[in-house]
């Protein structure tokens, strides 16, 4: 996802397994969302499906308070934009609380072996949702792309231009053309003759 620039900020106190931590992050601008301050105040930052909720500040910053050690999911809920989902892991390393963060897709496995996102880490909008479909207006070129229109067009050409072509022909050429048509013209089937041949076993050649 090259269009994303990530960075999150986390504040930590000294390590303690029972201690609760505050997560801070920021939504930053990108080509999808040029000004995070325009996001609705009803935007929510959700931890673990709604067990903790964070509100948005004017500059796009947010807090999630009282987060314990372990794995957590973080989402940004907004009507107009979609945002990536993050997996956070807060653990104690060398008596210090350390956080790692990865993107994840719902329904797919993730690996904690993958490289953690760089810090400080910020979230950008993935996509602006499109809600309204545009109706196709009247398009004269579009009409000619219609197969029915093409069939009608070819028929019209035959109806109007073939007689004109005939008019431009000389009498000799017409005669030749008529003869050609005459040759190719199928002869009517003589049913009685055919039946007689079949019953008598005679061939055309023999008859001749």
């Amino acid at each position: 996802m090259p269009y994303l620039i990530f960075s999150l900020q986390f504040l930590f106190s000294s390590a303690d397994t029972s201690k609760l931590y505050k997560i801070r992050g920021k939504i930053i601008e990108n080509e999808v969302l040029s000004d995070p301050s325009t996001l609705s105040p009803e935007t929510r930052i959700i931890l673990n499906g709604g067990q903790k909720v964070g509100f948005l500040q004017a500059d796009g910053s947010f807090y999630i308070n009282n987060v314990g050690l372990g794995e957590h999911t973080l989402e940004v809920e907004n009507v107009e934009y979609t945002f990536p989902k993050l997996l956070l892991k807060i653990e104690i390393k060398d008596e210090k609380a350390v956080v790692s963060a990865w993107y994840y897709e719902p329904g797919y496995e993730y690996s904690l072996e993958a490289k953690s996102l760089p810090f400080p880490l910020k979230i950008s909008a993935l996509q602006k949702r499109i809600f309204i479909m545009e109706r196709e207006g009247f398009n004269i070129l579009g009409m000619f792309k219609n197969p029915y229109m093409l069939m009608v067009g070819v028929s019209m050409v035959i109806i109007f231009f073939v007689p004109k072509l005939q008019e431009s022909m000389t009498e000799e050429e017409i005669e030749v053309s008529n003869q050609m048509f005459a040759k190719t013209k199928p002869k009517p089937i003589d049913f009685s003759n055919t039946l007689a041949q079949m019953t008598s076993g005679a061939t055309k050649k023999q008859k001749k």
């Binding site: 105040p41 948005l56 500040q57 004017a58 308070n65």
Partner: peptide
């Protein structure tokens, strides 16, 4: 938990918050 928050009166967005568990 106790949630202490200050909101921007114009935009309705959060200015700061403090949570006591």
């Amino acid at each position: 938990s106790q949630q202490y928050r200050v909101w921007d009166p114009t935009s309705g967005k959060l200015v700061w918050e403090h949570v006591v568990d």
